[in-house]
Design a protein around this nucleic acid. Structure first.
Lengths: 193, 193
DNA sequence: TTTTCGACTGTTTTACTAAAACGTTCCAAA
DNA sequence: TTTGGAACGTTTTAGTAAAACAGTCGAAAA
C-alpha cells in the first residue's frame, strides 16, 4: 500500500516531467492529475497550490544536483581538481535545472518568492562550499588567498558568467573547451612572479 | 543652412531620446517625426526604415562608449591599471547602452540581424583591445601569459558575467566594490608561488 | 535638383466581448 | 484518511471591428 509520502513523491515526479516540457504556466493542474491518474482536486490534498508543487519539483532537482556535485568533488583530494570538478558538475547540472529556471522566466517575468528563497539558499551553500575548498587548499599549502570570503564571491560570480551561454541555449558552447583557460588564470593569474 | 548629414544627425539624436525612453516597439515613426518637427515620410528620405534609424542610434552610442573607453585607458601606461580602467569604463557605459539593448530584448525576443552584426563587430574590437593590453604587459615584463588569445577570451567572458547584474538592473550593485577582488585574482591567481 | 509632406495602402495592434479554461474550494462518498 | 464531481470566481483565449502603424507615392515647395 502506498503511503501519503509515496504519492506525494509520485506527484512530484509526474509534475516534474510535465513542467520541464511545458513550463510553469502552460502546465495545468488537470494535466498533472490526468498523468497521475487522479482527480484534479486530489492533488490539493497533497499540495496547497500549483506554486507549491512546482517548488517541490525544483527543490528535488536542486537536491539531486547538489548530491551529484558533492559526490564528484569527493573523487579527488587535490583542491585544484576539486574546483575543476565542481564547475564541470555544476555547469552540466545547470543545463537541466536551466529548463525549470527558464520555464519560469519565460512564463512570468518575475519569479515567485518561494523559488527566490530556494535560489538564495543554494547560492549560500555554493558560496560556502567554494570557501571550504579554498580553505582546504590553504591548509594543504597549495593556495595563497588573502580573503577566502571575497575570493569565493569572485569565483561564484565568474561562474555565473560562464553559465549564461548555457541558459541562453548556445548549443555549440562546450564548457570543457574553455574551462582550462579559466582555471589557468584562476590558479596562476596573469602577472609575472 | 543645414546639410543632409546635419539633419540625419539631428534625427538620430531625436530618435535616440525617444527610443531610450520607450524602446523600439513603443516608439512610432510619427513620434520621431513630430519631435523633429518633420512629416513622418520625410524621415524616409534620410533612413530607409525604422530598423535602420534604430541601428544608427545604437551605432552612435556604441561609438561614443568606445571613444570614452579608449580615452580612459590612455590616461595610464601601467597595463594592470589599463585593464582596471577598461572594465570600469565599460561597465559604466553598459548601464546606458543597456537601455537600448534591453529595450530591444523586451520588445522582440530576437533582435535584428543588423544589430547582431554590430554586436559581433564590437565583441571583436573588445577582444583585440584586451589582447593588445595583455601583449603590452608582456613586453613590459609585467604579465606572464601563455596564450594571449585564449586569455583575452577568458577575460571578456568573465567581464560579461560581471555585467549581468547591471543589465538585470540590480541598483544596489556597485562594480567598484567587487572589481578589485576580481583583479586580484586575475593578476595573481589563487595558487601559492 | 533636393527636400518635404499629405494622402494612400496593406498590415499589425488594440480594445472589446463572450466563451472556454483555469486554479482552487467544498462536500459527499469511498 | 483519501478521493473526485460539481461548483466558484478569476484569468485566458478566440474572434472581430476599429484604430494605429510602417512604409510608398507623387505632387509641390524650396
Amino acid at each position: 500500500m502506498k503511503t501519503k509520502d509515496d504519492i506525494r513523491e509520485t506527484l512530484i515526479n509526474v509534475a516534474g516531467n510535465i513542467f520541464s516540457k511545458f513550463g510553469f504556466k502552460k502546465t495545468t493542474m488537470d494535466e498533472i492529475a490526468d498523468a497521475a491518474r487522479k482527480g484534479k482536486s486530489s492533488i490539493y490534498y497533497y499540495f496547497s497550490s500549483k506554486e507549491e508543487i512546482f517548488g517541490a519539483v525544483v527543490e528535488k532537482e536542486a537536491t539531486i544536483l547538489e548530491k551529484k556535485i558533492l559526490n564528484d568533488i569527493n573523487t579527488t583530494d587535490d583542491p585544484k581538481e576539486k574546483i575543476r570538478k565542481y564547475i564541470l558538475a555544476r555547469m552540466n547540472g545547470i543545463k537541466n535545472l536551466g529548463n525549470f529556471y527558464n520555464a519560469l522566466k519565460n512564463d512570468y517575468l518575475s519569479s515567485f518568492e518561494s523559488i527566490e528563497k530556494l535560489r538564495i539558499k543554494y547560492d549560500k551553500e555554493e558560496h560556502n562550499l567554494i570557501k571550504k575548498i579554498l580553505q582546504e587548499g590553504i591548509e594543504k599549502n597549495i593556495f595563497y588567498i588573502k580573503n577566502t570570503d571575497k575570493t569565493a564571491k569572485a569565483i561564484v560570480t565568474t561562474m555565473k558568467g560562464l553559465e549564461i551561454p548555457l541558459i541562453v541555449k548556445d548549443n555549440k558552447y562546450k564548457i570543457e573547451d574553455r574551462l582550462d583557460d579559466f582555471l589557468d588564470i584562476l590558479y596562476y593569474g596573469i602577472c609575472k612572479h
